[in-house]
Structures are given as C-alpha cells and as structure tokens.
Design a protein around this nucleic acid. Sequence first.
DNA 1: TGACATATATAGATTGCCGATATATGCTAA
DNA 2: TTAGCATATATCGGCAATCTATATATGTCA
Lengths: 114, 114
Amino acid sequence: MAIDKSLLTGSTTMLILRLLEEADMYGYQMIEELNKKSKNVFALKAGTLYPLLHSLEQKELVTSYEKTADNAKVRKYYSLTKKGSSHLHAKKEEWKVYSSAVNDVLGGATFATA
Amino acid sequence: MAIDKSLLTGSTTMLILRLLEEADMYGYQMIEELNKKSKNVFALKAGTLYPLLHSLEQKELVTSYEKTADNAKVRKYYSLTKKGSSHLHAKKEEWKVYSSAVNDVLGGATFATA
DNA sequence: TGACATATATAGATTGCCGATATATGCTAA
DNA sequence: TTAGCATATATCGGCAATCTATATATGTCA
C-alpha cells in the first residue's frame, strides 16, 4: 500500500540516514532497501533522492566515494558521518514526539518504544 | 516541545477533522485544542488554519455556521460532514500504515493499535 | 539490436505550511 | 480613558520538500 506522498515530508532524510547507519550504500540501492524494509510503503523517487543526497553531503551528514562493481559499473557510495549520526538520533527523538502527539490527538492508539 | 514543522505536512487536515469528530468548533478554538491535546507539540498557526478550513469547506468535508457568543462576539463554527468523516477514517488508516512503516525502517519500536 | 533494468542527474511544477500583515472587538491595567 | 493584549478571522507572499519529466550512460537479455 502506497500512502499519500505528503505524509513523507521531513522524514525522508531520517530514513536515508538510518539506512546508512547499517551499511554504506549507493542511491539506487537505498530506494530498493527503503521499499523492502517498509514493505512497499515507501516508493522513493530518484528525482527526490539524488538532490537530497547532494544536500546531505553539503551539510556533511554523509560522505561519498566511488566504487566499481563486478560488472565494471561505477557506483557512488554514501557513508554516514559522525555529524550525520548525531543528526539521525535527534530526528528519531523528534519522530517519537511527533508520532506520539498525533496518536494523542487521534486517540485509541498506543505507542510503545522498545 | 515543538517539532520540526516539516514533519507536520499532510497530517494537519487529519488532526482538524479528528477534533471536529468530537464537537463543532471554531478556528481559534481548534488551535487551542490541538495544542492542549498534543501536549504543546502542535502549535498550529492561524495563517495555516483559516485557509485550510476554507479549502475543507470547498471540498465539503466540513460545513460552517455563525454563532454569537455570550459577549456578543460572532464566531464561525465548523461541523464535520459525512464525507469528512469518511475522509478522516481513510486518513487514519494511512497514518497507521505510514507510521508503522517508519518504525519498521527505524527498528526498535513497536506500534500497537487499541 | 532493441527493449528494459541499472544508475545518476537536473529543471520545473506543485503542495503544505509559515511569517507578516490586516481588521475588528472585548478586557484589563496604568 | 486609553493603550495594550487576547480573541477571532482573513489574505498574501514565500520557502521547503517532493514529484514528474527528462536526460545521459552502461549492462543484460531476448
């Protein structure tokens, strides 16, 4: 199930950084991973991702390097910086506060963190 | 705690409709209610709310009527329509799917509905 | 060899929300 | 008594995030 794109706003950066927390990745791979991990809910578009990655690199939240795959294709890998890691943790806290507040207003839903 | 405004995108309509599900309200009151229910997380701006209410009325999700308060002040009350109620339920489902998906990606959080 | 998946990139448009500003009334304190 | 603040609604311009469309280049498979 795909959701209204407008709900995505603001959380995309967090999700991307979260992916990079586990492993270095190249753009195309992030789109696939995000789709898989979210059970097809997040269908991030290339036109959204690449400009976003460039801005994250400018903000020094990620760094990039090129790596040649087996098939001689050059891929651009991104890696989470220390600054990016801090940013991610802050955003995760924000997400917790935000989603709890939405649930407070909606009522009938409980939010538990493990 | 106030959160990054960008996270709000798309959910404001849902929250407003949710308020009207419980009782008819006028704009200014919604801002206060939302603030209270969300424990000061949502500080909706008048410049956001009033245009939004007008668009909701155009979409026939709400209707409005004027009512004079004790102090002779005229307030514009909004009421949820049947169409608005359906819309709200659809949006709530979307929110569940979306927030679960975010938690899936973030890991370490469980989402339970009551 | 032609179509499609992979892989990255940019420009233009849309949308949602905010800040600033405007208007008018009621209440309260100097 | 009047100046300031809260209440109450409204509009405009602008910004930020995302999408669509388009472009490029290579690898793979029918």
